[in-house]
Write a protein that binds this DNA or RNA. Sequence first.
DNA 1: TAAACTAACTAACATTTGTTAGTTTTGCCA
DNA 2: TGGCAAAACTAACAAATGTTAGTTAGTTTA
Lengths: 205, 205
Amino acid sequence: MNLISRNTFVLMKSKRQQIKEHAARLFRKQGYKATNMRQLAEAVGVKAASLYNHISNKEELLQELLMDMAQLFTQSMAEVHSSSLNPVQKLERLITDYVRYTVEHTDAISLLTGEWVHLADDPKKEFLNLRDNYEDGFRQILTDCMEAGHFKSIDVDIALFSTLSTLRWLYSWYSKHKDFDQQELEKQIKTMLIEGLRKQPISIF
Amino acid sequence: MNLISRNTFVLMKSKRQQIKEHAARLFRKQGYKATNMRQLAEAVGVKAASLYNHISNKEELLQELLMDMAQLFTQSMAEVHSSSLNPVQKLERLITDYVRYTVEHTDAISLLTGEWVHLADDPKKEFLNLRDNYEDGFRQILTDCMEAGHFKSIDVDIALFSTLSTLRWLYSWYSKHKDFDQQELEKQIKTMLIEGLRKQPISIF
DNA sequence: TAAACTAACTAACATTTGTTAGTTTTGCCA
DNA sequence: TGGCAAAACTAACAAATGTTAGTTAGTTTA
């Protein structure tokens, strides 16, 4: 005992969490392979060997960062799936969640696009499995939107890929426009992705 | 002399070119940092030291692969810029070129998104400079489209980012759909990006 | 045929890197 | 205050990595 006095501040992040956040920032900037434990240690303000009092190895960091994010998306999809929203509303919710995750976890989110290749076989499978499930859920919702007559009937895989591309790249755009209001960003992305897909623009009604 | 007898086949690629292509494939699959010269050598069918008869160092490979692609885009933009097409036609041409480059140089194109971070300072600046110029040209054309009244007036930076996201991610989609006809892919991407952006869908006319 | 060049090979190098062992410091609580 | 656990430090390791040196075999040129 106890967290309060040991860490000086009541809500102070655990050392482990601090390490993960510094790791996310470095992995993003330099890539996982190009980031070494001495750099990470320096960022944390400690010697390299001391990191191992809090983590078991380097890959564990990448693994947890990726899985933490994957869990968020899995949860987002589960909530949307079990809701009673209509397809277009479901799509909007997914986009809202994606924008929020991007704003709240910019560094970790950025790792989702390319760094998972450095995972060992088993965690890689696990990660890709979650990602595939998310994509399948997304595809299903897009299909529902089309079948309900709300959207143009373009190839659903191309629509899916284009939509996810925009969302997956968002962290990069957001990093250069941190001042942009989150609500406004969310609205514009929805306009771009949803109204852009809609058979008839809302404005003509 | 001469290339013919030395290489057995008249149109045989130079060893240097072969190395670059293997490098592109490995850099894409594993990342630049995670690919070592012994792996590359094995892929080429030679010992690591022998590579240095054809290249001067590892980074040169990445540098040339990235610059080769950057030149393609720079040329594409220059041609479009000096053409007499209208803004929407210009946009279509950029998309056509992008799809073609992606199909013809899938591996090298994939490196554009993340691997440039591993360049040394000077080549990195050079690369990012070309990329920025391309983005500026693209932004200008989107702006022209909007001002000509062809497109919705959404934030041009968001439209730019969303469009480029789709194009930049295309290599990933294409890799899983190699059978998809290039012309058809081009058409669908245009529909998605251009008709999707258009104020009134063509279908209602 | 002799000289020159190309491109392969083996061996080895200096660094870098992730990680461990062993030790010391720190701060809480009895 | 003395004991204890957490967490820091120093030192060192084994492996991996990019690259160079020196050599050799084969091919082209003079």
